[in-house]
């Protein structure tokens, strides 16, 4: 099957610090692909390139065969890439419904249509009860949900989740996992950065491990956890041999 998203030899550095070095991988339509790696491995930086927030120094990113790298965040959003942020960025002067409507307006012109779209998306994300609460009053878990809802309201082809489950209680994290599965069931492809291994590994079909800006390895969750390089990157040399 043709890849939905292709990353080709992508490199990006910030003032001499190489955040991403010749990264290449494909995301197949409909899959949940995990993006793992220790702090500073270049995961968020890669997300910023894919979502158009930064322009890669070299290499390219293709969505359904069309080049999207360097076009900027607005063009990427219109092309069908939606994202959440590691540090939540809700529109705090607005209610939950209004936040989600901003996402819905990406493809809709009329307020009525955007409202209907927002209602549907809030229902899907379990936010209907909080629809009229000001966004800044939400709990951290609800704010994560709000970001997912806002992104989904843009009707994306691929959703980038940046540490959506980090910092949540185990119960909240399990609810988050259920939401991610539901999003996948809707036909949206997912690329997720995550730290919480025991939560993310059962969820993803494949994972890419980054370390020091490079792709360390790619494989199924079972392969990943046994890979000596991965163990070394996370735990150090002492544990890698075993």
């Amino acid at each position: 099957m043709a890849a939905l998203l292709e990353i080709r030899n992508l490199s990006k550095s910030f003032g001499g610090v190489a955040a991403n070095v010749e990264i290449s991988f494909d995301v197949a339509p409909g899959e949940i692909l995990g993006l793992l790696g220790p702090n500073g491995a270049g995961k968020t930086s890669l997300f910023n390139s894919i979502s158009g927030e930064v322009t890669p120094d070299a290499g390219e990113i293709l969505l359904e065969g069309r080049r999207i790298s360097g076009l900027g965040p607005v063009a990427c959003a219109m092309a069908g890439i939606a994202r959440t942020f590691q540090v939540v960025r809700s529109f705090d002067s607005m209610s939950v419904r209004e936040n989600v409507m901003v996402g819905a307006f990406t493809r809709l012109g009329s307020t009525r249509a955007a409202m209907a779209q927002a209602d549907e998306t809030m229902e899907f994300c379990g936010l209907t009860r909080r629809a009229d609460a000001p966004a800044h009053m939400l709990s951290p878990a609800e704010k994560r949900r709000l970001e997912v809802a806002r992104a989904l309201a843009t009707k994306p082809k691929i959703l980038l989740l940046d540490e959506m489950l980090t910092g949540l209680t185990p119960t909240e994290a399990q609810e988050g996992v259920a939401l991610v599965r539901a999003v996948q069931a809707q036909g949206v492809t997912i690329l997720m950065v995550e730290h919480v291994m025991e939560v993310v590994l059962p969820l993803v079909s494949r994972a890419i491990v980054l370390n020091l800006g490079r792709v360390l390895t790619t494989g199924t969750p079972a392969e990943i956890v046994k890979h000596p390089e991965v163990i070394r990157a996370y735990l150090g040399d002492r544990y890698a041999a075993g």
Partner: peptide, 25 residues
């Protein structure tokens, strides 16, 4: 306030980066 413009403008006021990621020019 009730139109697409108003929503976009308020999004720009609240958080430019999030607004851009949702296709707001």
């Amino acid at each position: 306030e009730g139109s697409r413009w108003g929503f976009s403008w308020r999004a720009v006021k609240d958080d430019v980066i999030a607004a851009r990621s949702l296709g707001v020019r």
